[in-house]
Amino acid sequence: MTDLTVHLTQNDVVRGLRSDVLTGLTATRKTLPPKWFYDARGSELFEEITRLEEYYPTRAEREVLADRADEIAALTGARTLVELGSGSSEKTRLLLDALRDKGTLDEIVALDVSDAALESSVAILREAYAPATVHGVVGDFTQHLALLPGGAPRMVVFLGGTIGNLLPAERAKFLSALRDNLRAGEWLLLGTDLVKDRDTLVRAYDDARGVTAEFNRNVLHVLNRELGADFDVAAFEHVAVWDEQEERIEMRLRATRAMRVRIPGVDLEVDFADGEELRTEVSSKFRPARVAAELGDAGFELTKWWTDRLSRFGVTLAQATGA
């Protein structure tokens, strides 16, 4: 049995885009959230990024899951796997296979903002993991955690280092909301990219072929198409900066000339100075103590911590503590 539950409609998405553009482009330091990269073209570009030599996180995280999936299945005994931001669910299938082999897998819940991506992945999961029930939930993990289905014990899977795209206050709010919607004893499996040398980090976000640059500029194509904006996309250059103090990569778009941009969809005109930067993503990198502290503050207890063989990427298994 398969179902698709929609908590986020296209109208909701457009309203969210308008709100973020109005807030971010009128701020003293212009910003946009990274979720607006991911139209169909942006998703294709990101999949290409994950295959680049410089972009180690996907390979490193997959290595950990391949090595530890059986252990994770045995420790959790999860009957429901909930994946936040599921996309293609490719890495998660290592966990699903292990849970199925242990005989505990009853339900799969995949949450994503894209109904088209979910329809495809849900159909694939249904065929691969029958007779497990597969639920597709169209929603935003920052808004719809309380609406996720699934029987206990659940394991929520949040991979790819995506939590690093949230600022510290946003992470605290998200993790606390997630804990509030889990029963004591249920599980979180979290992927976090780790602090390492600056050159490795910057190369991962500024590859030699320019794929990440095209991905970054794609957000301007989204604004042009969805809001009727007149960004001259070629007039912005991609910048990746390592912030040593905050321990995060920032992706920015730098205006190569002074310009005024009109955005009719929000009745806005925005001036960019020559060299002015628009921040499009933060990607925080973590140390083990920071992961444990943030989880503990939210009501989780760290149970297991693993890294790949080169200690580039961390995967944490944590359990919701009692009320």
Rank of each mutant, 00 (worst) to 15 (best):
V6I: 12
H7V: 05
H7C: 10
T9Q: 10
V13M: 08
S19T: 12
S19V: 00
V21Q: 06
L22S: 14
L22I: 07
T23V: 10
G24Q: 07
G24F: 02
L25N: 08
T26E: 14
A27T: 02
K30A: 15
T31K: 04
L32C: 10
P33F: 00
P34V: 03
D39W: 01
A40H: 06
R41S: 11
E44G: 11
L45Y: 05
E48G: 06
E48Q: 14
I49Y: 11
R51N: 14
E54M: 02
E54L: 01
Y55T: 04
P57A: 08
P57I: 03
R59L: 14
R62N: 15
E63A: 13
D70Y: 00
I72D: 05
I72N: 05
I72E: 07
A73W: 03
A78I: 02
L84I: 01
G87W: 01
A110L: 15
A110G: 12
V113M: 11
D115F: 00
A117C: 01
L118Y: 07
V122R: 10
I124H: 12
Y129Q: 09
Y129T: 04
P131F: 00
T133L: 06
T133K: 09
T133W: 00
V134M: 10
V138K: 09
T142L: 15
L145P: 12
L147E: 15
P149N: 02
R154Y: 13
V156H: 03
V156S: 05
V157W: 06
V157L: 08
T162M: 09
I163M: 07
A172T: 09
A172K: 10
A172Y: 02
F174A: 05
L175W: 05
S176V: 06
S176H: 11
A177Q: 15
N181A: 05
L182I: 07
R183F: 00
R183V: 02
G185Q: 04
E186G: 03
L189S: 07
D193G: 04
R198V: 14
T200D: 14
L201D: 14
L201Q: 12
A208E: 14
G210C: 04
V211L: 09
A213W: 04
E214W: 00
N216W: 09
V219C: 01
V219Q: 02
V219S: 03
V222P: 05
L227V: 02
D230Q: 08
F231N: 06
A235H: 07
D243I: 00
Q245V: 13
E250Q: 10
R254M: 11
R254A: 12
A255L: 13
A255V: 08
T256N: 13
T256F: 00
A258H: 09
I263W: 06
G265P: 09
L268N: 12
F272Q: 11
R279P: 06
E281H: 02
F286N: 09
A292C: 00
A293Q: 10
E294S: 10
G296C: 01
A298W: 05
A298V: 05
F300A: 09
F300P: 04
E301N: 04
K304S: 15
W305A: 13
L310S: 15
R312V: 00
F313G: 09
T316P: 03
T316Y: 13
G322M: 07
G322R: 08
